[in-house]
Amino acid sequence: MHIPTCDTAQQAIVPFSQALDEALQPQPDYDVSRWLYVPNRYCDYRYILGTRGNRPLICVGINPSTAAPNALDNTLKSVERIALGNGYDSFIMFNVYAQRATRPDDMEKECNPALHEENMAAFRWALEQTRTGSPAVWAAWGAIIEKRGYLSHCLNDMIRIGRELDATWYSAGARSKKGHPHHPLYLRKDSGLDPFDAALYVDQVLSKL
């Protein structure tokens, strides 16, 4: 379990570009030809975790927990199975907010603009890794997005970036009564992907919370 030691505003945030450069260098603990892990060390935030390929499925949760290369948690194992089962050659786990907190209730109360800005740089980079077709983004945050008011604003920035890069959004499994996309953990391993209008979701679901 990861419990934040302090708000990220009290920490030095490594810019995504620098963290990426470091993550692309050979690592003693995992194979960089297979894994993407940025930053490449365990700390109170994580930009991306995934595998390398030409056609990744970019899964979007709310915030990271303890998963790392060669040590995927059950959620990430499900993400990888569904990505491969739907014809993608890899997956990238991204999150609306980059602060690690196994329990969403432990997330910081206020958005750290510096961390958010670097997280959006990571999202843009993740979308640019698709070599064939449009980037595929899987909305998979469940009702946890209700935990903090700033999360919908973060998501709006992601929708804007996705629009710039012609991303296509999907969900998997049944949506909640309120309309939230299903979390990956309890999905069937053969779950397919359904079209998801992220902008409409923000307008019709999040704006009414």
Rank of each mutant, 00 (worst) to 15 (best):
A136E: 03
A136N: 11
A136I: 06
W138H: 06
W138P: 00
A139V: 01
A140E: 07
A140Q: 04
W141C: 00
W141K: 03
W141L: 03
W141T: 00
G142Q: 04
G142S: 06
G142N: 01
I144W: 08
I145R: 07
I145P: 00
E146F: 07
K147H: 11
K147S: 12
K147E: 08
K147V: 14
R148K: 13
R148W: 03
Y150Q: 09
Y150V: 09
Y150I: 11
Y150P: 06
L151I: 13
L151R: 02
S152H: 12
S152N: 12
S152G: 12
H153I: 08
L155Y: 12
L155D: 09
L155M: 11
N156A: 15
D157Y: 04
D157I: 09
D157K: 14
D157E: 13
M158S: 04
M158Q: 01
I159G: 04
I159H: 06
I159E: 04
I161G: 06
R163K: 15
R163L: 04
R163Q: 11
R163E: 15
R163D: 13
E164V: 13
E164M: 14
E164Y: 08
L165A: 09
L165Q: 14
L165K: 14
L165Y: 11
L165T: 13
A167W: 03
A167R: 05
A167M: 11
A167L: 09
